[in-house]
Simulated scan of single mutants.
Amino acid sequence: MALTEKELQRFHLPISVPGMGVAMQEKLRETRLLVVGAGGLGCPVIQYLSASGIGVIAIADYGVISDEDMPRQPLYQMQDLRKHKAKMASSRLWASNPFTKHYPLLVQVKPENIAQLIAEIDLVIDCSQHGPTHLVINDACLVHNKPFVTGEVHNWVSWWGGFNMPQADGAVSASYRCSAALAEEYRNFDGGAMGVTHGATGLLMVNEILKYLAAVPDGLVNKFYSMDYLHNKFEVHTLSPDPAVIAQTKADGILTAADYGLEIVPDVED
Rank of each mutant, 00 (worst) to 15 (best):
I246D: 10
A51D: 04
A174F: 03
S226D: 10
G191M: 01
L34C: 05
D270E: 15
Q129I: 11
M227S: 11
H12F: 12
P166V: 03
V124F: 08
Q79F: 11
D126C: 01
V109C: 05
D169H: 01
N207T: 14
E269A: 14
V268I: 13
H198Q: 12
N138K: 10
V149T: 00
S175L: 08
N232P: 11
P243T: 08
Q73E: 12
A86D: 10
E185C: 14
A183H: 02
E185H: 14
K101C: 02
M205A: 01
A200D: 06
L220Y: 00
Q9A: 14
A58W: 07
Q167K: 11
F148D: 03
I46F: 09
I46K: 01
A95T: 12
V196Y: 13
L13G: 04
A119V: 03
I264H: 06
E152L: 01
N232T: 13
A244I: 13
P217S: 00
H12Q: 13
K85M: 02
K223F: 01
L75S: 02
G40V: 00
M88Y: 09
N164C: 10
G19M: 06
H144R: 11
N188T: 10
F11A: 04
M205I: 13
V196F: 14
D61F: 04
A257I: 06
V56W: 12
G192Y: 05
E235I: 06
Q73A: 13
V236F: 05
V35K: 08
H154C: 14
F11N: 00
P71G: 08
K27F: 08
P44R: 01
V45H: 04
V157A: 00
K250Y: 04
N188F: 12
K233I: 03
T256G: 14
A200L: 15
L220M: 07
Q47Y: 04
K211C: 04
Q79Y: 09
H237C: 05
G161L: 08
I118C: 02
L93H: 08
A183T: 11
R29V: 06
D139Y: 02
A51Y: 07
V196N: 15
I57K: 06
T31W: 11
F148Y: 14
W94A: 14
T31F: 08
V265R: 15
I118R: 04
L75D: 09
G170Q: 11
E208K: 14
A140P: 04
V196T: 15
E30S: 15
D139L: 01
F11V: 03
L220G: 05
V45Q: 05
D80Q: 11
M205Y: 07
K223E: 07
Q108L: 07
T4G: 15
V136D: 03
F11M: 05
E68Q: 11
L93Q: 08
R177D: 01
N155A: 13
T249I: 02
